[in-house]
Amino acid sequence: MIPILFIITIIAFLFVHLTPGDPIRIMYGAEIDQETYEQMREREGFNDPLVVQYGRYMYNMAIQGDFGQSYRTRSDVSEEVLRRFGYTFILTILSMFWAILIGVTVGIISATKRNSILDRLGMISTITALSIPEFWFGLMMMQIFAVQFGWFPTSGSGTWLHLILPSLTLGFGVAATIVRFTRSSVLEVLREDYVRTARAKGQKESVVIWSHVLRNALIPVVTMAGLQFGFLIGGAVVVEQVFAWPGLGSYLIDGILTRDYPVIQALILLFSFQFLLINLLVDISYGFLNPQIRYE
């Protein structure tokens, strides 16, 4: 994990510094004269070779634990990240909760009632959900449930009600993927000999499905759901912007718009770290689902 993170720091650094656009110009525009501009460039160290700049960045981060200050607000990036992390965390977790709840349930129904109207309906919905861009889906949700019915606030944060629409919007696409995955996995397991054994014991069909089949069918679904977390982090950036949710996503967008290098670098690194961490957790969770892995 450490070597991967190291490579990511290089990529993130190069990506940010080689992007066209100058943070100082963007921030002050034409308000400052050439001399002040040069001074500011010198102060931020932009005139040093990239390698030196990278070295300084790594030294500050790895040794001092300092992620730098935002060019724009002059506040500590790490403080701001910590403040906003909770918002994004609860949003992604809740989205994943919806995604798994909807995805696994609909997937099982689709598989057990294969080729029925329910199954067809489920499959059509998943294609639709996968094809709709999140920002548009979010706006539609807002239009219907917030503006028309007035059940939820349109945007912002504060109460748990603010969370419902953004998390549903974000979870929907992932739910669709999980539906398809669960369906094919359950269909595969249903053909296994041990399912026939369970039925031959006189076990109820519901227990056969929810215990014998599901425990086996979920193993690949868990992997996929873990990988989808990466997608969720990306999606959160868009959804947070749509719903004005004060999480990391909107911070990142602001950062990119103003070429706020320390902010962008810190967030790319954080997102990558989250992704790696989730993959690790997925690997560990195998042990609970598959006894063979637990012992080996």
């Binding site: 296994e192 000999d193 041990y194 026939r196 054994t197 369970a198 039925r199 031959a200 014991k201 006189g202 076990q203 109820k204 014998h212 425990r215 086996n216 689902l289 598959n290 006894p291 063979q292």
Partner: peptide
Amino acid sequence: MRKVRGNDISMIFQEPMTSLNPVFT
């Protein structure tokens, strides 16, 4: 029929390797 299966009539299968559920003891 569920009361008959496994109770009055039971069945063993050809494939012992795959006839037991791998995730249960």
